[in-house]
Computed example of a mutant assay.
Amino acid sequence: MLTKRCSSTERRRNNASPIISETTVSSPEFEIDQDNKTVATAVGHLPLSPIMDPSYWDAVTRHQAPKAKVGKATNSVERQFRKNPFAAALATPLRQCTASRTRLPSFFLQDFNLIAHPKTSQPWWVPRSLAWDRPVETQQADAASDEPVNAVSEQEQSAISKGIPQPKLPESTQTTSVKPYGPSAYALARRDLISSFTVKKSGFDKQYKRLFGGSSSRYTRFGYQAVWRQDMDSVILERMRQGIVEDLLYLSRLCSEDSRHYIVKCYSWDDIKNKHQGAVLWFGGSSKDDESTVSKVQPGPFATYDIAGENSTTSMAVHNMPMLLGNAAAAGVRDESAILRDGFLFMLAGRRTKDLQLKLWKLQGYLASYT
């Protein structure tokens, strides 16, 4: 026999609950037999009403409790998990690519949302997780003028002159009307797939009209009418690259100004074994100073550097930065960064580099050829 004591907390949680606080009414406790679904009363055992069943209220209120805040790691396994970018990628929620019907962690997919164009109100498809909102000052300037404002900061001008990518997203992602409407749609984060949406007889021609699939008939009509950029695959690529460039320059400033060690120089491939374990950045070939010291053999897609231990082998991702960012952008980053300027081989170390490692790994998958 299980005893259910009524409390004022349960009363406040759901007003439909028949439970009455002991502080207001003095009454005997209910003795509930959950196995037999009966409740003991003064006249004997009676059938248990569903609204008096504790398991019913547990099911009703379980989603109302606030989520526990993420605290500090309590053991070494949890600490290793939190700083591991591959574990973080696999831990993202499962979503389905509506083009290939493949279910994967959302890290391996590109999300799309509908956003209304600021002038025509026509729906546009945008890669929402890669879009950004303009500063309030620029938005206010647009409100006073019908013409779009394309202000370029001094930092952006410097980056453009050095070949660092500055992608152009649809106007609707850069205005005050940035709030998306409708659910998110997903497609595999692969350039060859996304570019095939605009190629006739590719098997995925105009797949963007069916990105919502059968998930929401309410928004299917809007998805079918929405504008899809012909260069969407390039827009996504340049935005990915810009995010990596911004993170590299930010971490470089922390290293040079605050004496941090997020980016560590490796003097040779063998020197990697003596550094902290993290992703390896290969910049060979992006500077004339490297030609005499760098091998002509370049790391390919998904290249790894293996370190054999006594009982196991540790594999670290090796990223060919000129291949991922383009030669001009890779050289531009090195010119901007005092840390990356000298050398051709570097390692990302520390938990603070996890997001950058995730971006690099996703870009690897986006550009890779799976044929």
Rank of each mutant, 00 (worst) to 15 (best):
V199A: 12
I164Y: 00
K179Y: 09
V178L: 08
S172Y: 02
R190V: 02
K168L: 11
R191T: 02
K209M: 15
K168W: 08
L193D: 03
Y181E: 05
K168A: 09
Q174H: 12
S195D: 08
K206L: 14
F204K: 06
R191S: 01
S202N: 04
K209D: 04
R210N: 15
P180F: 03
Y186R: 01
V178G: 02
S158R: 14
V199P: 07
K209Q: 15
A189E: 00
L188M: 11
I194D: 03
T175N: 06
P170M: 08
Q207F: 08
P183D: 14
Y181I: 07
P165K: 02
P183K: 10
Q166H: 08
G203L: 06
L193P: 02
V199L: 14
T173W: 04
A189I: 01
D205Y: 15
V199E: 15
R190H: 06
R190N: 06
Y181A: 05
A187D: 01
F204S: 05
S161F: 04
K209R: 15
S172W: 06
L188G: 02
K168Y: 07
P167I: 08
Y181H: 11
Q174R: 15
K209F: 06
F212R: 03
L211T: 07
G163S: 09
A187P: 01
R191W: 00
S184W: 05
R190K: 14
P170G: 08
S202M: 10
G182S: 10
R210F: 11
S177T: 10
F197E: 03
P165A: 05
E171I: 10
G163E: 04
K168F: 00
S195R: 13
Y181D: 03
L211K: 11
L169E: 01
Y208V: 05
K168S: 10
K162D: 05
A159H: 11
A187Y: 04
G163L: 04
S172H: 07
T176E: 05
P183L: 12
L211V: 11
S184E: 14
R210K: 15
T175D: 09
G182L: 07
G182T: 10
E171D: 09
S177A: 13
F197P: 01
F197T: 05
S158Q: 15
S184F: 05
Y208K: 05
Q174I: 11
I194N: 04
S196K: 10
L193I: 09
T198F: 08
S172F: 05
K200A: 14
Y186A: 02
P180S: 09
K206A: 13
P165W: 01
S158P: 06
K162N: 13
G163Y: 00
S196I: 09
P180Y: 01
S195N: 10
Q157P: 00
Y181M: 07
S172M: 11
A187H: 04
T175E: 02
S161E: 14
K201A: 13
P165S: 04
S177G: 02
T175A: 10
D192G: 00
R210H: 15
L169S: 00
Q166F: 07
Q174Y: 06
P183S: 12
S202Q: 06
Q157I: 05
V178W: 04
A189N: 00
I164L: 12
A185L: 04
Q166S: 11
F204E: 03
S195Y: 07
V178C: 07
P183M: 09
A187L: 05
K201Y: 09
